[in-house]
Design a protein around this nucleic acid. Sequence first.
DNA 1: CGCACCGCATTACAAATGTAATTCTATTTG
DNA 2: CAAATAGAATTACATTTGTAATGCGGTGCG
Lengths: 323, 323
Amino acid sequence: METTEAQLMSRAAWLYYLGGLNQEETSVRLGLTRARVNKLLQQARETGLVSISIDRRDIGLMEVEEVIAKTFGLDQCLCTPALGFDAVASLPPVLAEFPRRAVGSVAVSLLRDTLVAKPDCVVGTGWGRTLDQLTRQIAGLKAPRARFVSLMGSLTANSAFNPFEVVQSLARMTGGEGFFLPVPFIADSPADREILMSQRTVSKVLHMARHPDLAIISVGELTEDSLLRQSGMISAAELTALHEAGAVGDTNGIFFDANGLPVDHPLNQRTLAVGFESLRASHVMLLSAGLEKVEATLGLLRNGLVKSLVVDGDAALKIAAAL
Amino acid sequence: METTEAQLMSRAAWLYYLGGLNQEETSVRLGLTRARVNKLLQQARETGLVSISIDRRDIGLMEVEEVIAKTFGLDQCLCTPALGFDAVASLPPVLAEFPRRAVGSVAVSLLRDTLVAKPDCVVGTGWGRTLDQLTRQIAGLKAPRARFVSLMGSLTANSAFNPFEVVQSLARMTGGEGFFLPVPFIADSPADREILMSQRTVSKVLHMARHPDLAIISVGELTEDSLLRQSGMISAAELTALHEAGAVGDTNGIFFDANGLPVDHPLNQRTLAVGFESLRASHVMLLSAGLEKVEATLGLLRNGLVKSLVVDGDAALKIAAAL
DNA sequence: CGCACCGCATTACAAATGTAATTCTATTTG
DNA sequence: CAAATAGAATTACATTTGTAATGCGGTGCG
């Protein structure tokens, strides 16, 4: 009987994590060196063969969750723990990423529940660093009948946060199918947008993207530091103009005001993305990580589009304080 | 805002397991000593706040699972990894317990699925070391509306494997309700059995026990080393007599032959347990850990009562080889 | 055939973790 | 008020784990 790499990982994991043997004992039992067992266990964690989950029950933010859910008529509001990360600037890189990781991890468990309940689900996704964290933590979740579709066009730059990448990793990791819109994210003119949207290959995917069972979106803030600005998708001048038009944030490249309504600005005529109204029929899950997104998040919440909110604890506290 | 112990555990766990900080960094971040963080993390694992799960997909026994399931008309057959533990006698204590732990862990995940699907489930249970392992690993599973009921009377000795203990831990850990039969496991005579069974307190519980949604049972072998014999529930003479009557094993104190049918022996008239026929309407899940149980397991499987089998890999291989 | 190369074993070392002993501190209790 | 006590900080130490350096054996390829 041929023993594959995966089988070795599996055996090592069972003996080590469940059997309570240490790596030395495990290696003896399996007839391998300890170094090899160490590597196998590492792989087992990375590939999701072994997964560690943390119960969200007692982080002490239930009240905050309830207040937010009630105020905005959400089905559910889930917070990650508050850690007092106010001075984000001074944080080492690992911690700066923490809120997004945490939110991503909670989102994964919700996505898992959805896919278990409805294995042939259509899941629409946005883009960004939080969505990226979601894809990184989805290892081990199989959903061969699921379809993942991008709710928007792609970035031109080959960023890891590209909508294309998000959909691709989701499909690859789960064994499901991935669909994305083979068009830019923001067209050069409203007329170009129409042409792009009407391409047959595009409209086919768009049709699916307009009616996902679940839509997982995130929100962008409108500052010089925002991903949208940093990746050069919009210019400094456009940023200013958007502010003047009353915009406080964006989702999928749609810029909205403090009430979550799309602002009247040329950019909004050039965005290639599924509009808010199409998504009202879907279960919209908003992921929001980081204090800098509070204003934009509040705006989008006021729209009433969002059904589930996953937000990091510190941001949640700030949101609750602002009510 | 008061920070409770549980909240500290939770924060430490998020930073350590999700954030990728080490214990030193975590302690600094939380303003605690490293030793304290170490203890918090330990507690977090023990209480089930943090849980580690291992994917059962690639242990390389799918074929075996399918053969067994098909042969006995099972809904599902799940194996734990085969580790070549043939020489059980020579194993150190930790490893001797391993197959039971592994089976228990898989059983927990099935129980979890059941309770998620039907939160007000009635779960009937047997007793034994494998069931004991199940209760030890159920931490973190909440099911306040579930009812756990013992399918049999209790041992007189205050063993940790007592049906009473099994039901109690299940109820305590999940927050559900526990019911057990306040009578001995084996009565002194058939007449005594009738009297005991007819007690009002007993018959009430018995009524529930006869129609559980899920029945989790295990199987006992008939040797000098068996738990039944070791705990003094049956005498050496009775053991011999049972052999002569064709018995190969027991479940809940009901002794059955190679075809899983109760044998004709006085002991079977003295057992206080829910009979096989009552359970046909329930989803019966059989847990079997250890090579010594192969014969008895085969017998019970032939009865056709069992819907789900969870079995350790080494035993599964032996079972498949015997087909 | 011999050379390059890959994967793993071996070894050695550094870092992280688990744990026990001791001291400190605050709170209870006589 | 002083003694007792419990819990946590501090410290120190042993064990375990992670990781890099080196070497060995087999495989493929020129």
